[in-house]
Amino acid sequence: MVRGVRKTRRGARDAGRGVRTRRGALLLAAALTLGAGGAVGATGCGPETSPAPGGPASATSAPTGPTTPAASSDPATSTPPAPTTPPRTATPPGTIAPTEEPRGQEVLVEVVVSGGLAGVRNQLIVHYDGTWTSRSGTKPPRTGRMTPAEAAELRAALEDPAYARVPTRPTGDPVPDGFQYVLTHRHRIVVAGDGERPPALRRVFAALPDGGPPTRP
């Protein structure tokens, strides 16, 4: 009877020890689990966290824009420099710019004659190509053409430096009821009468076609 009671008590103690042993093992396992979880969180190996909005910060990049290609040392591939426009040179003061050659149909000389007893006013126009037109009063105009030699002689007489020195007004005594001649050559006007005439002026009159400007009414 006593032995049975002792065995029962011993079995109860052994059972209690087994319960404590299992409880301790469970507590130890829980402690190890918690410790492992803390270590994992400390080392950054825990649950992933979503990155901040906008993504990770990136390195500052240089502004983009057109780039200038570097000069190549190879003459075959290098770009030649752009041509430069030479500066304009001003015409020195007092210098006359060259004029274009006159065309054939431009007026070489115009002679208007007026006066006389009848009070005429007639006209003779000669062009550079030698063609001429003569008008006398109300009559139909007469036309003609000088030979190349005759046209060259008239041009030479008008371009003679001596003609450029002819006075623009008559120098001799006026002739009663005489005629007055107005010659226009390249915007220069010379007025002459039937009186004394310089040789350069006489040369121009001698070279005029059809005997000069008509003096008939």
Results as ranks from 00 to 15, higher is better:
Pro170Ala: 09
Ala118Phe: 10
Ser134Tyr: 01
Pro87Tyr: 02
Val120Ser: 03
Pro209Val: 04
Val113Trp: 02
Thr95Arg: 03
Arg135Trp: 06
Glu106Leu: 09
Gly55Phe: 14
Pro69Tyr: 11
Gly55Pro: 08
Pro141Ser: 13
Thr184Ile: 05
Thr168His: 07
Ala206Ile: 10
Val5Met: 07
Gly193His: 07
Gly115Ile: 01
Val109Ser: 03
Pro92Cys: 08
Thr33Lys: 00
Ala151Leu: 00
Ala57Arg: 14
Pro66Tyr: 10
Val111Trp: 11
Pro198Gln: 15
Val166Ala: 02
Pro199Leu: 15
Val109Lys: 02
His187Met: 13
Glu153Cys: 00
Pro199Phe: 13
Lys139Asn: 06
Thr131Leu: 03
Glu159Lys: 05
Ser72Ile: 09
Ala29Thr: 14
Gly193Tyr: 07
Pro161Arg: 03
Pro92Ile: 08
Tyr181Asn: 06
Gly115Trp: 01
Thr89Val: 13
Arg121His: 11
Leu201His: 15
Glu48Arg: 15
Asp210Val: 00
Ala59Gln: 11
Phe179Ile: 08
Thr168Ala: 11
Arg216Ala: 15
Arg188Tyr: 12
Arg203Asn: 07
Arg13Tyr: 10
Gly46Thr: 09
Arg121Lys: 13
Val19Leu: 11
Ala76Trp: 08
Ser134Asp: 06
Ser114Lys: 05
Ala76Met: 03
Arg10Glu: 12
Arg216Thr: 15
Arg145Ile: 04
Pro102Met: 03
Gly54Phe: 07
Ala192Ile: 13
Arg10Ser: 10
Pro102Cys: 01
Leu154Ala: 02
Pro148Lys: 02
Ser61Ala: 15
Gly119Glu: 06
Arg88Gly: 01
Asp160Phe: 06
Ala36Ser: 07
Pro56Trp: 13
Ala200Tyr: 00
Ala149Asp: 03
Thr77Asp: 04
Gly16Asn: 09
Arg203Glu: 05
Leu158Asn: 01
Ala29Arg: 09
Val112Gln: 12
Gly137Cys: 09
Pro47Asn: 09
Arg145Ser: 04
Gln180Tyr: 05
Thr77Cys: 04
Ala59Val: 15
Val166Met: 09
Gly178His: 05
Leu26Phe: 08
Thr91Gln: 05
Pro199Asn: 13
Thr84Glu: 05
Val113Leu: 08
Pro80Trp: 05
Pro174Gln: 08
Asp177Ser: 05
Leu117Cys: 09
Thr60Glu: 12
Ala57Glu: 14
His185Lys: 14
Lys139Gln: 12
Leu117Tyr: 12
Glu153Thr: 06
Leu208Ile: 05
Arg10Lys: 10
Glu110Leu: 09
Gly195Val: 10
